[in-house]
Amino acid sequence: MGPLIPQGYITGQWEFVIALLIGAAFGFLLESSGFSSSRNIAGVFYGYNFVVLRVFFTAMIVAMVGLLYFDYLGWIDMSMVFVLPTFLAPMLLGGFIMGLGFVIGGFCPGTSYTACAIGKLDGFAFLGGFFLGVFLFSEAFPLFEKFYYSGDMGNITIGEVLHVSDRVVAFAFVVIAIAAFYVTWLIEKKVRANRTESKFE
């Protein structure tokens, strides 16, 4: 039956209502996972807290496996689901910049909003920088427009690149994720054992 809008079950005007609901749910989960605290977020880079990695990896593998089951059951037609086009080099650079912002600022864009929502001043400061960055980016956009659109690989998925089925990719990711959970748990244990001021929420 799904996806609802491309199949015409509901009109595209519902997009914003659905976006609002998903956004509220996303914000709630970020906050309840403790992501409005910079300590939790930046902890990934110092090795004492990998909750970010765990939450996002869990979300990813559950969604991945769930969608593939739903596709099989006929509840959602994955061939109609939009796949974001891949621009490899610009995306790598973008990821690097975002990671840098992550470790310097202690928030990712979504969590800075949840930090604002619970009244954190550093969240507001981050948001100010965020908008300044958006403004500068937009103004300077013509300078790197060519790079921004370079290397368009189209709407491809990992399975299509590697010529394996999406199910194999999902299985591989589940194994990788669980291995990552175990390894990060070991790292966490080691790092925390040496810490004296290890109180964080």
Binding site: S33, G34, N40, N49, V51, T58, V62, G66, Y69, L73, R192, R195, S198, K199, F200, E201
Partner: peptide, 24 residues
Amino acid sequence: SNKHVHETNPKRTVIVMVIFVAVI
């Protein structure tokens, strides 16, 4: 005590996961 509340209490995750499996 130096662990996040969710790390010591994965019960909710288990409940959600069981519902997820039940749906499938």
